[in-house]
């Protein structure tokens, strides 16, 4: 039986990847847009590295963490929209009539996201290296970085799947996007928290889990091995993943209200 289950998961993950690959906009946009923003911000804010206490003298290195989060976001939105479309077209009903277990659907969906997450991470990392960023944590750090980025993708992906399963509407999934973006912007994305002057902004950024995801990735690039940042980053990524997967599983059970 476990063989069958593995086959189901693999096939569903494959479909999720194939479907993404066959909509080039869904690949290009999550790859190009974060890099474009990186270019804009790295160019525009390079002067900020001259602030006393700024942790590095390369803003590109500082900002390189952001694309990993943005890429996960874009991929998640696309995957969530695809899942919502499956619900709208009745494709999910077709799957529900097979002996497939609900968890296979979710695992397959997340499997596709993992594949996209790995590809994206490699591209961002490659671009970073190409423009002269060097990882303080070395090659092992690169590996840890990719693992963390993929874990974040899974967490966000499960949130997207939850939204899709709960609402059954692609538009509802898309409308989550601005919410995610608010979280991203009100974080320590563009400035280290200790250099944010405005009190309420610093408080919000400190309470915002996205700050810790970014800071963990960033620490591997500009600091080296910062246990605290890594523990916080992995901790939050893990917590988000657990909560989101639980929510998505519950929503799936309701959605597949088969007896």
């Amino acid at each position: 039986m476990s063989n069958v289950f593995a086959g189901q998961v693999l096939t569903l993950a494959q479909r999720s990847v194939v479907r993404t690959v066959r909509q080039p906009a869904n690949i290009v946009f999550p790859l190009v847009f974060p890099l474009l923003l990186l270019a804009v911000n790295a160019g525009g804010l390079d002067a900020a590295t001259r602030l006393p206490g700024f942790p590095t003298n390369s803003f590109v290195a500082f900002a390189l963490a952001i694309p990993f989060i943005q890429g996960a976001l874009f991929a998640t939105m696309n995957a969530g929209t695809d899942l919502a479309r499956d619900i709208q077209t009745g494709f999910l009903n077709r799957l529900a009539l097979t002996p497939m277990r609900g968890i296979a659907l979710l695992t397959g969906q997340l499997g596709g996201i993992v594949a996209m997450g790995v590809i994206q991470s490699l591209v961002y990392l490659g671009v970073g290296l190409a423009v002269g960023v060097r990882l303080e944590s070395g090659p092992a750090g690169a590996l840890v970085l990719i693992v963390l980025a993929v874990l974040i993708s899974i967490g966000f992906g499960a949130l997207g799947a939850f939204a899709a399963l709960r609402t059954g509407s692609g538009e509802a999934v898309q409308s989550l996007f601005p919410v995610f973006f608010v979280f991203l912007f009100l974080s320590s994305m563009a400035m280290p928290r200790n250099l944010i002057e405005i009190d309420w902004f610093r408080a919000v950024a400190t309470a915002n889990p996205v700050s810790y995801l970014i800071e963990a990735i960033r620490s591997l690039i500009i600091v080296g091995w910062d246990e605290e940042a890594l523990a916080l980053g992995f901790g939050f990524a893990f917590a988000i993943t657990v909560v989101a997967v639980a929510l998505a599983s519950m929503a799936l059970r309701t959605r597949l209200a088969r007896s």
Partner: peptide, 18 residues
Amino acid sequence: ALDPLLTGREHLRLQTTM
């Protein structure tokens, strides 16, 4: 209820695997 991005054969592979 079909996926416009998959081929006919891929649909059958998905269904038989399930």
